[in-house]
Amino acid sequence: MTKAPRVYGTEHDTPATGPQPGHTYRELVGGPLDRQLIEVTGWTHDEITTGAQLITPHSAYGPGGRASYGPTFSCPDGPWVWEGDGP
């Protein structure tokens, strides 16, 4: 049995941390948040195509650093790829 991917912003020990029906997600690929999902339900097209700077305890800048993720030009509706870390 495979575990559902964890949704960014949920705690490891929280029940039902996987994707919920009726919500829209993007998979995060690479970097410190690899294989997590970010919920983009309600985001505008511009917000989704821009990507996000996500706070993570595992960035190159330590706890509270940010990891940049965004869509690729070849697959704008697909997974978001890691672009690097920032403070």
Rank of each mutant, 00 (worst) to 15 (best):
I55S: 15
Q36N: 07
P57K: 09
Q53K: 14
I55W: 11
L28V: 00
G78I: 02
G42D: 09
S74Q: 00
E83S: 01
T49W: 12
T10N: 14
H12I: 12
H45Q: 15
Q20T: 10
T10I: 08
R26V: 09
D46N: 13
T17N: 15
G31H: 07
G78V: 01
G31P: 11
L33D: 06
P21K: 12
T50M: 07
G70M: 01
H45R: 15
D46M: 07
H12V: 12
S59D: 03
A60D: 07
P71V: 01
L33A: 06
I55P: 09
T50A: 15
H12K: 14
G30S: 09
G78R: 00
D13W: 14
E11P: 06
M1V: 07
H58S: 09
F73L: 11
G18A: 08
T72A: 11
G84R: 01
G51L: 01
P57G: 10
T50P: 08
P71F: 02
P32E: 04
Y25Q: 09
I48Y: 00
T41A: 03
G86T: 09
K3M: 14
P19M: 09
R6D: 13
P71Y: 00
P57M: 03
W80N: 00
R66F: 03
A16C: 10
G18V: 03
G86N: 11
P79C: 05
P87T: 01
T49E: 14
K3N: 12
P57Q: 10
G65T: 02
C75P: 00
D46G: 08
H58C: 03
G78W: 02
V7Q: 10
W80F: 04
E39C: 15
A16Y: 13
L54W: 03
